[in-house]
């Protein structure tokens, strides 16, 4: 007898569900910054080697995304924003995501080692470990500083790209790291100010809730001040130039101004205009990072100092 109902218990995922486990939107940032890091690095890299390097860095980033979705499946089921992810929606089982994450991590690290060099591969392995274990498992549910330290995972890709081309770390790659690292807190907390406090309800401590919104405003402004010297300092290195410098000065001035406006506002003012300034600064933060890296890319094409 045919028993078609037997199938309905097992989740049968489509191909796209596995792609969704790799967080394609996060991957696009990884691809862009890793590409810039690789492209502006000194030395010739064969275009196909460069392509493969970026591909496996992105795959490593995707693998850590799958590991993150496996570990966070309990809180993803609570928050509105993440309920439609493959695991909480019941299309993929948690163990499948874990398996996919581990297998893709190994493949991406081994392939990056064979394509580029083993230093870059070890760096990628460390980044996956940092995001999946240090951030997701340890810091995320423990401290409201989670995104500050976790931001390092997002800041490593340009350093890995640079390491693919040069086999090492230099002041330029460290400054590219600092640019993303110190950009993450103001970017995220500006979002946290106008976003619903979903995260906190799900058990992820957020600065806006644990220390209050005025504290978050002070932190945003402080980080925009810390960020500026690193962003402008990058312009003084071998990868900088007049164009990058002009872009960095304008964007940092605008970002500090935004941070100052956020600091000066009271909660009442913010609620009155529907968090207009906070939304504007969040939007600016997206352009901030994109334009800095774009400027580095264009500067390397037209030649630097």
């Amino acid at each position: 007898m045919t028993d078609i109902n037997a199938y309905e218990e097992t989740p049968e995922a489509q191909f796209g569900d596995y792609v969704a486990l790799l967080k394609p939107r996060v991957m696009s940032l990884v691809v862009f910054t890793a590409f810039v890091g690789l492209w502006i690095a000194p030395g010739e890299v064969h275009p196909f080697i460069a392509f493969c390097s970026i591909l496996f860095i992105a795959l490593g980033g995707g693998a850590s995304g799958a590991l993150n979705m496996w570990y966070d499946r309990d809180i993803d089921a609570i928050m509105n924003r993440t309920q439609s992810r493959p695991i909480p929606a019941g299309r993929v089982e948690g163990s499948e995501a874990l398996g996919l994450g581990i297998v893709l991590s190994v493949i991406s690290v081994m392939m990056l080692g064979l394509v580029a060099n083993w230093f870059a591969a070890a760096f990628l392995a460390f980044t996956i470990f940092f995001y999946a274990v240090i951030y997701t498992v340890w810091l995320k549910r423990w401290t409201p500083q989670n995104i500050v330290i976790g931001g390092a995972a997002g800041a490593f890709p340009p350093m890995i790209g640079w390491a693919c081309a040069t086999g090492g770390i230099t002041v330029e790659s460290l400054l590219m790291f600092a640019l993303i690292f110190f950009w993450t807190p103001p970017h995220f907390w500006a979002l946290a100010l106008f976003m619903k406090e979903d995260y906190h309800k799900a058990g992820v401590p957020m600065l806006t809730v644990t220390h209050g919104r005025p504290t978050a405003r002070r932190h945003i402004f402080a980080y925009t001040l810390v960020l500026a010297p690193f962003a402008i300092g990058l312009g003084l290195t071998s990868v900088g130039g007049p164009l990058y410098m002009a872009v960095a000065v304008v964007l940092n001035a605008a970002f500090i101004r935004g941070g100052w406006q956020i600091l000066r506002r009271s909660e009442e003012q913010a609620v009155a205009d529907g968090f207009a300034v906070e939304r504007q600064v969040f939007k600016l933060s997206l352009y901030y990072l994109f334009l800095h890296f774009l400027a580095l890319l264009v500067q390397s094409w037209i030649g630097g100092w």
Partner: peptide, 23 residues
């Protein structure tokens, strides 16, 4: 859904073979 998975994985594996060869 199963077919989408099979075809997708097939394409990924073929691309991987082509990539290793080109490399």
């Amino acid at each position: 859904r199963r077919r989408s998975r099979n075809i997708g994985l097939g394409i990924v594996l073929l691309c991987f073979v082509a990539l290793v060869f080109a490399l």
